[in-house]
Design a protein around this nucleic acid. Structure first.
Lengths: 122, 122
DNA sequence: TATTATACCTTGCGACTCGAGGTATGGGGC
DNA sequence: GCCCCATACCTCGAGTCGCAAGGTATAATA
Protein backbone atom coordinates (compact mmCIF):
# COMPACT_ATOMS: atom_id res chain seq x y z
CA UNK A 1 0.00 0.00 0.00
CA UNK A 2 1.34 3.33 -1.00
CA UNK A 3 1.90 5.81 1.72
CA UNK A 4 1.07 8.65 -0.57
CA UNK A 5 -1.48 10.08 1.79
CA UNK A 6 -0.39 13.65 2.38
CA UNK A 7 -2.93 16.14 1.16
CA UNK A 8 -4.90 13.69 -0.88
CA UNK A 9 -8.24 12.45 0.16
CA UNK A 10 -8.11 9.68 2.76
CA UNK A 11 -8.42 11.61 5.99
CA UNK A 12 -8.66 14.55 3.81
CA UNK A 13 -10.29 17.40 5.06
CA UNK A 14 -13.73 17.92 4.24
CA UNK A 15 -14.37 20.39 7.04
CA UNK A 16 -17.86 20.68 5.80
CA UNK A 17 -20.77 19.24 7.54
CA UNK A 18 -24.05 20.88 6.79
CA UNK A 19 -22.35 23.15 4.31
CA UNK A 20 -24.26 21.79 1.31
CA UNK A 21 -27.48 22.71 3.03
CA UNK A 22 -26.26 26.18 3.86
CA UNK A 23 -25.01 26.99 0.38
CA UNK A 24 -28.08 25.57 -1.31
CA UNK A 25 -30.39 27.67 0.83
CA UNK A 26 -28.33 30.76 0.22
CA UNK A 27 -28.26 30.34 -3.56
CA UNK A 28 -31.98 29.67 -3.69
CA UNK A 29 -32.65 32.78 -1.68
CA UNK A 30 -31.37 34.84 -4.59
CA UNK A 31 -33.45 33.09 -7.21
CA UNK A 32 -35.27 29.95 -8.20
CA UNK A 33 -32.86 27.31 -9.48
CA UNK A 34 -32.77 23.62 -10.41
CA UNK A 35 -30.51 20.83 -9.20
CA UNK A 36 -28.14 20.47 -12.07
CA UNK A 37 -27.70 24.23 -12.13
CA UNK A 38 -26.96 24.35 -8.41
CA UNK A 39 -24.17 21.81 -8.73
CA UNK A 40 -22.37 24.10 -11.13
CA UNK A 41 -23.26 27.30 -9.31
CA UNK A 42 -21.49 26.08 -6.19
CA UNK A 43 -18.42 25.17 -8.19
CA UNK A 44 -18.41 28.50 -9.97
CA UNK A 45 -19.16 30.83 -7.10
CA UNK A 46 -16.49 29.28 -4.92
CA UNK A 47 -13.95 29.14 -7.74
CA UNK A 48 -13.65 25.38 -7.25
CA UNK A 49 -12.80 25.75 -3.57
CA UNK A 50 -16.01 23.89 -2.81
CA UNK A 51 -17.54 21.21 -5.01
CA UNK A 52 -20.54 19.02 -4.37
CA UNK A 53 -21.62 16.35 -6.80
CA UNK A 54 -25.15 15.42 -7.74
CA UNK A 55 -25.03 12.61 -5.21
CA UNK A 56 -24.85 15.28 -2.53
CA UNK A 57 -27.09 17.96 -3.96
CA UNK A 58 -30.18 15.98 -4.91
CA UNK A 59 -30.62 14.18 -1.59
CA UNK A 60 -30.21 17.45 0.30
CA UNK A 61 -32.78 19.18 -1.91
CA UNK A 62 -35.24 16.37 -1.28
CA UNK A 63 -34.68 16.46 2.45
CA UNK A 64 -35.12 20.22 2.58
CA UNK A 65 -38.33 20.02 0.62
CA UNK A 66 -39.65 17.27 2.86
CA UNK A 67 -38.83 19.47 5.83
CA UNK A 68 -40.77 22.33 4.32
CA UNK A 69 -37.78 24.59 3.77
CA UNK A 70 -38.10 24.41 0.01
CA UNK A 71 -40.89 24.08 -2.48
CA UNK A 72 -40.53 22.86 -6.04
CA UNK A 73 -42.27 23.06 -9.38
CA UNK A 74 -41.64 21.31 -12.66
CA UNK A 75 -41.00 23.49 -15.61
CA UNK A 76 -40.06 22.65 -19.16
CA UNK A 77 -37.50 24.85 -20.82
CA UNK A 78 -36.26 24.21 -24.34
CA UNK A 79 -37.95 20.85 -24.26
CA UNK A 80 -36.05 19.99 -21.08
CA UNK A 81 -37.90 19.14 -17.93
CA UNK A 82 -36.45 20.75 -14.85
CA UNK A 83 -37.38 20.87 -11.18
CA UNK A 84 -37.04 24.40 -9.88
CA UNK A 85 -36.67 24.99 -6.15
CA UNK A 86 -37.34 28.08 -4.11
CA UNK A 87 -37.35 29.02 -0.44
CA UNK A 88 -40.38 28.93 1.80
CA UNK A 89 -40.76 31.12 4.86
CA UNK A 90 -39.40 28.26 6.94
CA UNK A 91 -36.47 28.03 4.57
CA UNK A 92 -35.64 31.69 5.00
CA UNK A 93 -35.72 31.27 8.77
CA UNK A 94 -33.50 28.24 8.51
CA UNK A 95 -31.03 30.08 6.33
CA UNK A 96 -30.87 32.87 8.87
CA UNK A 97 -30.18 30.48 11.73
CA UNK A 98 -27.58 28.49 9.84
CA UNK A 99 -25.82 31.61 8.67
CA UNK A 100 -25.60 32.97 12.19
CA UNK A 101 -24.23 29.68 13.47
CA UNK A 102 -21.74 29.44 10.66
CA UNK A 103 -20.44 32.94 11.34
CA UNK A 104 -20.09 32.32 15.04
CA UNK A 105 -18.29 29.02 14.57
CA UNK A 106 -16.00 30.04 11.75
CA UNK A 107 -14.94 33.16 13.59
CA UNK A 108 -14.19 31.12 16.68
CA UNK A 109 -12.04 28.74 14.68
CA UNK A 110 -10.35 31.64 12.98
CA UNK A 111 -9.58 33.02 16.41
CA UNK A 112 -7.86 29.85 17.52
CA UNK A 113 -5.91 29.60 14.28
CA UNK A 114 -4.57 33.09 14.59
CA UNK A 115 -3.63 32.46 18.17
CA UNK A 116 -5.96 35.11 19.48
CA UNK A 117 -6.01 34.65 23.23
CA UNK A 118 -9.68 34.23 23.94
CA UNK A 119 -10.35 37.89 23.53
CA UNK A 120 -11.73 40.26 26.10
CA UNK A 121 -15.24 39.69 27.33
CA UNK A 122 -17.89 42.08 26.12
CA UNK B 1 -32.24 20.57 34.18
CA UNK B 2 -32.89 20.15 30.57
CA UNK B 3 -30.16 21.56 28.51
CA UNK B 4 -32.69 22.21 25.81
CA UNK B 5 -30.50 23.42 23.07
CA UNK B 6 -32.69 25.93 21.36
CA UNK B 7 -31.59 25.36 17.81
CA UNK B 8 -33.10 21.95 17.27
CA UNK B 9 -30.29 19.59 17.79
CA UNK B 10 -31.69 16.83 15.63
CA UNK B 11 -30.22 17.49 12.23
CA UNK B 12 -28.46 20.29 13.84
CA UNK B 13 -25.86 21.03 11.40
CA UNK B 14 -22.51 21.08 12.92
CA UNK B 15 -20.62 22.47 9.98
CA UNK B 16 -17.46 20.93 11.20
CA UNK B 17 -15.81 18.00 9.65
CA UNK B 18 -12.15 17.64 10.38
CA UNK B 19 -12.30 20.62 12.69
CA UNK B 20 -11.39 18.64 15.80
CA UNK B 21 -8.18 17.57 14.14
CA UNK B 22 -7.38 21.10 13.04
CA UNK B 23 -7.94 22.68 16.44
CA UNK B 24 -6.07 19.97 18.29
CA UNK B 25 -3.03 20.35 16.07
CA UNK B 26 -3.13 24.09 16.44
CA UNK B 27 -3.35 24.05 20.22
CA UNK B 28 -0.56 21.52 20.49
CA UNK B 29 1.64 23.64 18.32
CA UNK B 30 1.70 26.25 21.05
CA UNK B 31 2.56 23.85 23.84
CA UNK B 32 2.42 20.29 25.08
CA UNK B 33 -1.03 19.44 26.45
CA UNK B 34 -3.04 16.46 27.62
CA UNK B 35 -6.45 15.22 26.51
CA UNK B 36 -8.61 16.38 29.34
CA UNK B 37 -6.98 19.78 29.15
CA UNK B 38 -7.59 20.02 25.41
CA UNK B 39 -11.29 19.40 25.82
CA UNK B 40 -11.56 22.46 28.03
CA UNK B 41 -9.12 24.55 26.03
CA UNK B 42 -11.30 24.25 22.94
CA UNK B 43 -14.35 25.28 24.93
CA UNK B 44 -12.55 28.21 26.51
CA UNK B 45 -10.72 29.57 23.51
CA UNK B 46 -13.83 29.55 21.38
CA UNK B 47 -15.99 30.98 24.14
CA UNK B 48 -18.27 27.94 23.89
CA UNK B 49 -18.84 28.46 20.18
CA UNK B 50 -17.16 25.12 19.61
CA UNK B 51 -17.27 22.18 22.00
CA UNK B 52 -15.91 18.68 21.57
CA UNK B 53 -16.40 16.03 24.20
CA UNK B 54 -13.89 13.42 25.26
CA UNK B 55 -15.52 10.96 22.91
CA UNK B 56 -14.29 13.11 20.06
CA UNK B 57 -10.95 14.27 21.38
CA UNK B 58 -9.37 11.01 22.55
CA UNK B 59 -10.00 9.04 19.36
CA UNK B 60 -8.62 11.88 17.25
CA UNK B 61 -5.50 12.12 19.41
CA UNK B 62 -4.92 8.39 19.03
CA UNK B 63 -5.39 8.52 15.29
CA UNK B 64 -3.02 11.45 14.93
CA UNK B 65 -0.38 9.70 16.98
CA UNK B 66 -0.77 6.53 14.97
CA UNK B 67 -0.33 8.60 11.84
CA UNK B 68 2.85 10.10 13.21
CA UNK B 69 1.54 13.63 13.52
CA UNK B 70 1.76 13.57 17.31
CA UNK B 71 3.98 11.98 19.90
CA UNK B 72 3.06 11.38 23.53
CA UNK B 73 4.69 10.83 26.89
CA UNK B 74 3.25 9.93 30.26
CA UNK B 75 3.89 12.30 33.06
CA UNK B 76 2.67 12.34 36.62
CA UNK B 77 1.70 15.67 38.07
CA UNK B 78 0.31 16.06 41.58
CA UNK B 79 -0.11 12.32 41.79
CA UNK B 80 -2.14 12.37 38.58
CA UNK B 81 -1.04 10.46 35.55
CA UNK B 82 -1.43 12.35 32.32
CA UNK B 83 -0.61 11.71 28.68
CA UNK B 84 0.98 14.77 27.15
CA UNK B 85 0.93 15.22 23.38
CA UNK B 86 3.13 17.34 21.17
CA UNK B 87 3.58 17.89 17.44
CA UNK B 88 6.07 16.04 15.28
CA UNK B 89 7.50 17.48 12.10
CA UNK B 90 4.80 15.65 10.18
CA UNK B 91 2.23 17.17 12.48
CA UNK B 92 3.48 20.66 11.78
CA UNK B 93 3.26 20.00 8.08
CA UNK B 94 -0.23 18.64 8.47
CA UNK B 95 -1.30 21.66 10.46
CA UNK B 96 -0.01 23.92 7.73
CA UNK B 97 -1.91 22.06 5.03
CA UNK B 98 -5.14 21.88 6.97
CA UNK B 99 -4.97 25.53 7.88
CA UNK B 100 -4.48 26.56 4.26
CA UNK B 101 -7.42 24.42 3.18
CA UNK B 102 -9.61 25.74 5.95
CA UNK B 103 -8.87 29.33 5.00
CA UNK B 104 -9.57 28.73 1.34
CA UNK B 105 -12.84 26.93 2.01
CA UNK B 106 -14.18 29.20 4.71
CA UNK B 107 -13.45 32.27 2.63
CA UNK B 108 -15.23 30.73 -0.33
CA UNK B 109 -18.28 30.02 1.79
CA UNK B 110 -18.12 33.49 3.26
CA UNK B 111 -18.11 34.82 -0.27
CA UNK B 112 -21.27 32.99 -1.20
CA UNK B 113 -22.99 34.03 2.02
CA UNK B 114 -22.26 37.68 1.48
CA UNK B 115 -23.46 37.44 -2.06
CA UNK B 116 -20.09 38.34 -3.48
CA UNK B 117 -20.37 37.65 -7.19
CA UNK B 118 -17.48 35.31 -7.75
CA UNK B 119 -14.97 38.11 -7.46
CA UNK B 120 -12.55 39.28 -10.08
CA UNK B 121 -9.94 36.85 -11.30
CA UNK B 122 -6.39 37.40 -10.18
C1' DT C 1 -17.40 8.11 53.87
C1' DA C 2 -19.58 9.91 49.92
C1' DT C 3 -19.43 12.94 46.27
C1' DT C 4 -17.13 15.62 42.94
C1' DA C 5 -13.41 16.62 39.84
C1' DT C 6 -9.70 14.89 37.33
C1' DA C 7 -8.03 11.79 33.81
C1' DC C 8 -8.08 8.12 30.82
C1' DC C 9 -10.67 5.12 27.46
C1' DT C 10 -14.21 2.41 24.02
C1' DT C 11 -18.56 1.33 21.82
C1' DG C 12 -22.63 1.80 18.96
C1' DC C 13 -25.89 4.73 16.69
C1' DG C 14 -26.87 8.02 13.49
C1' DA C 15 -25.83 11.39 10.19
C1' DC C 16 -23.33 12.91 6.35
C1' DT C 17 -20.63 12.71 1.96
C1' DC C 18 -19.55 10.88 -2.26
C1' DG C 19 -18.40 7.97 -6.14
C1' DA C 20 -20.57 5.05 -9.07
C1' DG C 21 -24.20 3.74 -11.44
C1' DG C 22 -28.87 4.14 -13.77
C1' DT C 23 -32.62 6.52 -16.85
C1' DA C 24 -34.01 9.75 -20.35
C1' DT C 25 -33.78 13.34 -24.03
C1' DG C 26 -32.11 17.19 -27.01
C1' DG C 27 -28.56 18.87 -30.22
C1' DG C 28 -24.41 18.46 -33.21
C1' DG C 29 -21.34 16.23 -36.14
C1' DC C 30 -20.73 12.92 -39.75
C1' DG D 1 -30.13 8.41 -39.66
C1' DC D 2 -26.87 7.44 -36.04
C1' DC D 3 -23.78 8.17 -32.27
C1' DC D 4 -22.14 10.73 -28.65
C1' DC D 5 -22.06 14.47 -25.58
C1' DA D 6 -24.31 17.56 -22.53
C1' DT D 7 -28.24 18.21 -19.94
C1' DA D 8 -31.23 16.68 -16.28
C1' DC D 9 -33.08 13.74 -13.05
C1' DC D 10 -32.34 10.04 -9.55
C1' DT D 11 -30.60 6.08 -5.94
C1' DC D 12 -27.52 2.94 -3.67
C1' DG D 13 -23.63 1.35 -0.87
C1' DA D 14 -19.51 2.21 1.30
C1' DG D 15 -16.90 4.76 4.23
C1' DT D 16 -16.15 8.48 7.63
C1' DC D 17 -17.08 11.25 11.32
C1' DG D 18 -19.11 13.03 15.59
C1' DC D 19 -21.16 12.17 19.82
C1' DA D 20 -23.68 10.63 23.78
C1' DA D 21 -23.27 7.14 26.81
C1' DG D 22 -20.90 4.20 29.43
C1' DG D 23 -16.72 2.34 31.87
C1' DT D 24 -12.34 2.51 34.98
C1' DA D 25 -9.43 4.68 38.39
C1' DT D 26 -7.70 8.09 41.75
C1' DA D 27 -7.22 12.60 44.28
C1' DA D 28 -9.51 16.15 46.71
C1' DT D 29 -13.25 17.87 49.27
C1' DA D 30 -17.26 17.98 52.05
Amino acid sequence: MVKADATTNSTATSFMNGVPELLLLRLLQAREMYGYELVQAIRDETRDAVQFGEGVVYPVLHALEKDGALKSRRKTVNGRSRVYYSLTAAGRRRLGDLTATWLKVSEAIQGVLTGARHAEAI
